[in-house]
Design a protein around this nucleic acid. Sequence first.
DNA 1: TAAACTTATGTAAACGTTTACATTATTAAT
DNA 2: ATTAATAATGTAAACGTTTACATAAGTTTA
Lengths: 334, 334
Amino acid sequence: MNPTIKEIAKRANVSIATVSRALNDLSNVKNDTKVLIKKIAEELNYNPNIAARNLVSKKTQIIGFVLPEIEGEFYTEVIKGIDKVAYGSGYHMIVASSHSERSIVETLTNFMKRNFVDGVIVMIPAVNQQVKELIEGSRVPVVIINAKNEIDNVDTVSIDNYQGAYSITNYLIKNSGYKKIAIIKGPAQNNDALERFEGYLSALTDNNIEVNDNWIIEGDFTMKGGELACSRLLTLSDRPDAIFACNDIMAIGCYKVINNLGLNIPDDIGVAGFDHINLSEFILPHLTTVHVPKEELGTEAGKLLIDRIEKGDTKEITHLKISTGIVFGNSSKN
Amino acid sequence: MNPTIKEIAKRANVSIATVSRALNDLSNVKNDTKVLIKKIAEELNYNPNIAARNLVSKKTQIIGFVLPEIEGEFYTEVIKGIDKVAYGSGYHMIVASSHSERSIVETLTNFMKRNFVDGVIVMIPAVNQQVKELIEGSRVPVVIINAKNEIDNVDTVSIDNYQGAYSITNYLIKNSGYKKIAIIKGPAQNNDALERFEGYLSALTDNNIEVNDNWIIEGDFTMKGGELACSRLLTLSDRPDAIFACNDIMAIGCYKVINNLGLNIPDDIGVAGFDHINLSEFILPHLTTVHVPKEELGTEAGKLLIDRIEKGDTKEITHLKISTGIVFGNSSKN
DNA sequence: TAAACTTATGTAAACGTTTACATTATTAAT
DNA sequence: ATTAATAATGTAAACGTTTACATAAGTTTA
């Protein structure tokens, strides 16, 4: 059906080896021959058979991206970042989220055991033992996004959560003048959440502010969770004058509660988030939050992975930390 | 490196043909042999080489999804839908959005010419001549999401925009009692936008409401566009009492302007959108909008494509229209 | 018990490339 | 003009499967 190099060889009166060399622009092919072959290939609308090429090269030019769920803009941005880099280097990306019918482990196993992808990028908030072992034992190159640095023979890219949380807390203190800053944490096993919490603690300490345990509330990174946490905080007898929600969605949950109580943001109570999702700019007042370069997370992971695929073990392991910045909204005084 | 069927054959003292048959659970293999072979495969941690298999089967079990840009939850949901169906049928999905470095045509060409994917799902708001020809001439099965039915030898899935727009306009009239309903349209070449506009017109006509050209404003499906359109409408001497924005993002733009002017939604002016994006439930008052089953769009397209891949031309062309529903928010009176 | 099936296995080709090695044609060096 | 070096091309194997066809082994049937 599809023309093959055999067909081209016949028409050009050369061997298939020469055709292959010509089409791949290898050296040692007379220019005339090369031109002729390319012309014929063009005429026949020739396209190389990828499977055949993969078979001999033992590469597929495909990278896999494993994530818990394709949802929310965060992952979307990361996907975009990976895709751009992949495309630029001649790779394709297969996205595999886990869902009702497929577990993360299953996906990962599939990607790593079969000679199906050249490398895998994994972005999961909490790496459990099983996943850890899977990754450590993998012959396929892996890059992990945003996990705790507990797998050290693997390249990683992550957000500097500590720095982000530290600076926004510091900002709330130094610039806005808040003194009683509460925090709504993220899920307990979530590494990002942990690091953010630590940044918050350090900032308080460095500013000689005592940590008040009543103002440290567990959250779950959902809006509902934000609402509940916020209403707990606002009904305390000694209530905080600012709330640092460990992600934007929870911060938006706070907005709801605060508005319902007829309080003013940022005068009665300041609010800050983390992530800088689009929504944070849609709401009023605009949310003060931490900008996370989501797409960059993807591009960096992509670069690292492709480098690893192409250079193998000659390159040493990289642990990349991507810094964040503050988005100065109006949900905090200034 | 990786064990092959050859290695298994050697250990089991059989030919590679038998191994292949045993592993693929084909008939005509003695049960003892089958069990033995499978045991050895297991021990060796054997995984079939996909490239080799693809080479002979001339299939890759990969489907491509082409979209203009991975952005916003709409596409995300569709991706999720496709992924689920694909996975269920043993396929993988490669997502290729166009971006700075890659045009839609380029992506499409890449997918359709090479024997790289078994089928392609295309979701682009406006199919131009070049794309049309590309699709019509494709030997690779294609399913188009949400485009005008102008390519008839291809399966399509689309939202019933007309019905959605008709019913929400009708709702604004019949249930909310609005009489002066303006519309903010979508981009001129966008097919969804056109159909929505037609639904609006029909609903007015069927309710014996005269169409007022001043209340028909061009929009562009962006928040900013919604703001501008809204402020134009609200400064008219004869201003509408309700606005139907052809997508939610523009409706949210309207909220901004209306709030700024100190007007009340839904009493001074009603607002309705289209798409039912998450955001529509975050804002207050909750937006009255048209629910679009985004994930279903993906699953249906996936099913159609895989069916086409596996059944070939024996199955006749399907043009599927997916109905929508109204989300009764508080941005309209009731 | 031979003939006729059926079942189980093997042989070898095919899929479409790439590439090591061999060969021939061309150019440079003496 | 002969030899040496280089450039261009060809030959054939290899990649790891699947599968048509051939063969061997086992089971009915008359």
